[in-house]
């Protein structure tokens, strides 16, 4: 039977992330990727804010559009998957993605990307990156039903979302009331 249409997506709270990189390490550990392949990347936005980004499983994925082998599919739950059997490693998806999600794997000589840990999700578990986030800065929800007036579609430092309509939402940085002395 066909499953109900969902759009699973990440929600990132800028205030809660302190750049520990646990999500990035958990992703690498779960998927056993090569040391040069970063499906999830944590980068510094400003002096005290960070951004953790992986594939955003876009509504209009560019990788899906440009792939000459039709190796990409979008599952009913919104996860964009790559079929490595069809991938020839041409690199078009790597160039097209505004978020740098597909990565070239030198071992397999093909493109690979975050698959939102769908085997874990099928077992009822959250993606490894979400589970590893100790401050709950990174969560994941069904964006078709999730509703919170505080969230925004993009934050400064995040690439233009107009083209691909990514499945990520943000709690933007708020003005801090307390500072820790360094």
């Amino acid at each position: 039977m066909r499953q109900m249409v969902k759009q699973m997506g990440f929600v990132f709270n800028v205030d809660l992330c302190f750049g520990c990189m646990a999500c990035e390490i958990a992703c690498r550990n779960e998927n056993q990727t090569d040391s040069t392949v970063r499906w999830r990347k944590v980068s510094r936005l400003t002096d005290d804010t960070f951004l953790s980004v992986s594939c955003n499983h876009c509504n209009s994925p560019e990788c899906f559009r440009v792939c000459p082998e039709n190796a990409f599919t979008k599952r009913g739950d919104g996860i964009v998957q790559i079929n490595s059997d069809l991938c020839t490693g041409c690199g078009l998806c790597i160039e097209a993605c505004p978020y740098g999600a597909p990565q070239y794997d030198p071992v397999t000589q093909k493109a690979s990307k975050c698959q939102m840990c769908y085997p874990r999700q099928d077992r009822g578990l959250p993606p490894a990156c979400v589970e590893s986030c100790s401050t709950e800065a990174l969560t994941f929800v069904d964006l078709n039903t999730f509703c919170d007036k505080k969230i925004v579609g993009s934050i400064p430092g995040f690439p233009d979302t107009r083209l691909t309509n990514p499945s990520i939402a943000f709690y933007p940085a708020t003005e801090r009331k307390r500072y820790f002395l360094k």
Binding site: R2, Q3, M4, V5, F64, N70, T73, K74, R75, G76
Partner: peptide, 15 residues
């Protein structure tokens, strides 16, 4: 509509 939508969705994404 739920069943229809699942089918239409698969059509729209070439599944």
């Amino acid at each position: 509509q739920q069943f229809k939508e699942a089918f239409i969705y698969d059509l729209l994404y070439g599944n």
